[in-house]
Design a binder for these strands. Structure first.
Lengths: 205, 205
DNA sequence: CGACGCATTGACAGGGCTCAATTTAAGTGG
DNA sequence: CCACTTAAATTGAGCCCTGTCAATGCGTCG
């Protein structure tokens, strides 16, 4: 069954698919990391989510033959499995329980953006940034001696696009947290040394 | 098949289900209008979307037996059809093509919030408010002699919760547009007299 | 080692939130 | 039908967060 799929490799910076294109295929991330973003008419870019190993991409859109809702590009060398629309549709009809494997991630992502939409409305930058770090940490954190390292390149600008602010405000905020000893950061690299403090901060906001 | 469903009536202000409760049932709006909202810890409320006749509510959550992602309450006398989890699951397994009837709305809503998330990041209040009015107009507008009337009660505060601002800024902005002759508004009622101007404004923002 | 891109920091301005005081309009009961 | 009540809407004043612009520092890679 899985053999019907095609192996794909994408290099950092390369685009897997573009927002607005017809979704002919869906993907499963095997290794590496993708960045799903959406572009505004006036040029500003927003990061919808990062996708790591084990996650499905564009499954719903491909099922329906709709357009991709965002643009997916690799932030690391990424390996994927891919299926075309006909194959998925056929699989879905012949294996009804498969639907649940699609529905759960869809529900999770719905929950994710709706929560972030709420935060964007209700909280100011620092609170959103704290939650963003925690969220990304849960998703892509690796335990190291110094703390929990986010193990893919993540710039100030990326974070800004993720929480809806500017790279300047992100920089200022991270500097403040670094002085407090909550994080250690370098060029496109962030280590969270005190997750508990960050959580308390995000809650109490 | 449809006979398995239960008829439900909800009065304005009444709550159909609460965010966080286990989703045991899903619903189809037959008449009236629901307001789906999400509450922030610090008390602020955000309106995720309005639901009118023909729209499914909580279908995905009920399929998965997950928790409701938001709170649904009526803004008008509302009539619904409702099914419980077991029934949907059974229907889905026995009628595989039914899945598509669930996937399409899910995709539409995903697209809707992601777009609004983008707007919230990229545009300022006036632009978002213009788009919100147009979106609600598409969804619930009724042609009248004066223009296109939004035919359910919609206060300044509702609009504020919808676009992520305060009722004061909404009031000021609507006043300005009323002076320009783009809209006519009263207590919880809005008529769009010049949709074209609003669209141009939203685009050019 | 030089150059490019990312990050930092300061100064400044403005959009929009907050708070407070009225005004307007709908609904209610005598 | 008209006071009376209550909730929504309007408007003004002040201020703060954060976006914008500009200059500089620094780490990485060719």
């Amino acid at each position: 069954m899985l053999a019907c799929g095609t192996h794909i490799h994408v290099q950092p910076g390369e685009t897997l698919f573009h927002q607005g294109d017809r979704a002919e295929r869906c993907f499963l991330v095997l290794g590496g990391r993708l960045r799903l973003s959406k572009l505004h008419e006036q040029g500003k870019e927003v990061i919808l989510r990062y996708l790591g190993p084990g996650e499905l991409v564009a499954a719903l859109a491909a099922c329906r033959g709709a357009d991709y809702l965002g643009t997916a590009q690799a932030v690391e060398p990424t390996e994927l499995m891919s299926w075309d629309r006909e194959t998925i549709e056929e699989l879905m009809l012949t294996h009804p329980p498969l639907v649940h494997s699609l529905l759960q991630p869809a529900l999770d992502r719905m929950n994710d953006i709706q929560s972030r939409y709420l935060e964007l409305c209700a909280e100011q930058v620092a609170g959103r940034l704290a939650r963003a770090l925690l969220r990304i940490m849960e998703h892509a954190g690796r335990k190291t001696e110094a703390g929990i390292t986010i193990d893919f390149p993540l710039s100030r600008e990326d974070l800004a696009s993720y929480v809806g602010t500017t790279l300047y405000t992100v920089s200022r905020t991270l500097s403040a947290w670094e002085k407090k000893g909550w994080i250690v950061s370098g060029r496109e690299r962030i280590v969270i040394t005190n997750p508990h403090a960050l959580m308390e901060f995000a809650e109490g906001y």
